[in-house]
Amino acid sequence: TFELKGKVGKVVKIAEDHYLVESEGDKWIAYSDEKLSLGDRVMVVDVDGLKLKVKRIP
Rank of each mutant, 00 (worst) to 15 (best):
T1S: 15
T1A: 15
F2V: 15
F2R: 15
F2Q: 15
E3M: 01
E3P: 15
E3R: 00
E3H: 02
E3I: 01
E3L: 01
L4W: 05
L4K: 14
L4I: 14
K5C: 15
K5A: 15
K5R: 02
K5N: 15
G6L: 01
G6N: 01
G6T: 01
K7L: 11
K7R: 11
V8H: 04
G9D: 00
G9M: 15
K10I: 07
K10M: 08
V11C: 12
V12R: 06
K13M: 11
K13Q: 07
K13C: 13
K13V: 06
I14R: 07
I14C: 13
A15S: 08
E16G: 10
E16L: 08
D17R: 09
D17S: 10
D17I: 11
D17F: 11
D17E: 09
H18E: 12
H18Y: 07
H18R: 09
Y19T: 07
Y19M: 13
Y19R: 00
Y19E: 01
L20C: 12
L20H: 11
L20N: 06
E22N: 04
E22I: 07
S23F: 14
S23V: 15
S23I: 15
S23D: 04
G25H: 04
D26V: 07
D26M: 13
D26W: 13
K27T: 13
K27L: 12
K27E: 10
K27I: 11
W28L: 08
W28F: 13
W28M: 05
I29Y: 14
I29N: 10
I29F: 11
I29P: 10
Y31I: 13
Y31G: 11
S32G: 12
S32A: 12
S32E: 01
S32R: 08
D33T: 10
E34K: 05
E34W: 04
E34C: 11
K35E: 10
L36K: 00
L36V: 05
L36P: 02
S37M: 11
L38V: 08
L38Q: 08
L38W: 08
L38K: 06
L38H: 08
G39S: 09
G39E: 11
G39F: 11
D40E: 11
R41S: 14
R41Y: 13
R41T: 13
V42K: 00
V42L: 02
M43F: 08
M43I: 14
V44Q: 01
V44K: 00
V44Y: 03
V45N: 04
V45M: 12
V45C: 04
D46C: 03
V47T: 04
V47P: 02
V47D: 03
V47F: 09
V47M: 07
D48I: 13
D48F: 09
D48N: 06
D48V: 07
D48C: 14
G49W: 07
L50Q: 12
L50G: 11
K51V: 14
K51A: 14
L52E: 02
L52Q: 02
K53F: 13
K53G: 11
K53Q: 13
K53S: 10
K53Y: 12
K53I: 05
V54K: 00
V54L: 04
V54G: 01
V54A: 02
V54D: 00
K55P: 00
K55E: 14
K55R: 06
K55I: 14
R56E: 06
R56G: 11
R56F: 14
I57N: 08
I57Y: 12
I57D: 14
I57P: 05
P58I: 06
P58E: 08
P58Y: 05
P58D: 09
